[in-house]
Design a binder for these strands. Structure first.
Length: 278
DNA sequence: GGTGCGATCGCCT
DNA sequence: GGCGATCGCACCG
């Protein structure tokens, strides 16, 4: 209570930032005090989860990118194993004006056809000759959301095996938070293949998205909005805040401390205004 | 911790 | 023919 009544001041903003970041670590059991490296996720429960249908995906791109945060991506392998990961980082690619989008200028090709299909359609494309990225079509012509990072919830050992298969023999064992902290890493860990392109996330039997009744949805105050990764060459579109991640989450691929500090400053200011201390 | 670089090939011009 | 919505590793501090 009293800690929330801070006025803005740099050193305190710093320390509060540290506090904000260590808490999710503890929640995840990913701190150093867990030598096994395994965790009993507070998010995984026996309660029935709800598969999300077309109406969830049928919203504007930026809204969908934020709405994805906290949802659970499920991949069912042919042997019946279910791999689960919570979405903690996304990017919005708007199409049309968005110069960084594969569908910039409304350009439609064989590769990006899925971006123009109905909301919920999966867009998988190869990058750098050796990796894949997974997107999901949203409302809006050619618009889609890139899934960048997941928090592994179940099937971690299988994920580790799938990731190891693509790495050099004898490479070190990956930590849990390293399994899905990147767009191509999550495709490897969940065995998302090229053939998933143009499939429907709302109805497919091998991959789907679930809400999680146990966990609260990421609230606006905990979502960092910042620039997208790997699109530096696209002028003003490179700097627009179209990447979204759960603040303080250890599985996010790239942090932007400045954006987080600015968030904290404006939050502190709002609290101060509410308190009448400014 | 951070920075720089090479790998590798499908897609688009 | 050039480049990319990436990653892992070597190297530095």
């Amino acid at each position: 209570m009293t800690t929330r009544k801070r006025k803005k001041s740099l050193p305190q903003a710093e320390s509060s930032s540290v506090q904000t970041h260590s808490e999710p670590l503890k929640r995840l059991g990913l701190s150093d005090t867990n030598p096994a490296g395994h965790l009993h996720s507070p998010y995984f429960s026996t309660r029935e989860s709800v598969r999300l249908s077309y109406s969830f995906f049928d919203q504007p791109c930026v809204d969908l990118a934020k709405a994805f945060l906290g949802k659970v991506l499920v991949r069912k392998l042919t042997d019946g194993t279910e791999l689960r990961g919570r979405v903690v980082e996304t990017e919005a690619y708007l199409g049309g004006e968005d110069k960084a989008s594969h569908s910039a200028g409304g350009k439609r090709t064989e590769r990006n056809t899925a971006m123009f299909m109905k909301p919920g359609t999966i867009y998988v494309y190869p990058i750098y000759g050796i990796y894949l990225c997974m997107n999901v079509s949203s409302q809006g012509e050619g618009a889609a959301v890139l899934l960048r990072s997941l928090e592994p919830l179940s099937g971690q050992d299988v994920m580790r095996g799938l990731r190891a298969a693509k790495r050099k023999a004898g490479a070190r064992i990956l930590k849990e938070k390293e399994l899905c902290n990147g767009p191509s890493k999550l495709c490897q860990a969940l065995d998302i293949q090229r053939c998933f392109d143009r499939r429907d996330l709302a109805t497919d039997s091998e991959v789907w998205l679930e809400g999680d009744p146990e966990a609260e949805t990421a609230s606006a105050g905990e979502v960092v909005s910042t620039s997208r990764i790997g699109v530096e060459s696209h002028g003003e579109w490179a700097t627009k805040p179209l990447r979204f991640y759960m603040r303080g989450h250890p599985c996010v691929s790239v942090l932007n401390r400045d954006a987080e500090r600015q968030m904290q400053s404006s939050t502190d200011l709002q609290i101060a205004e509410t308190d009448g201390t400014v």
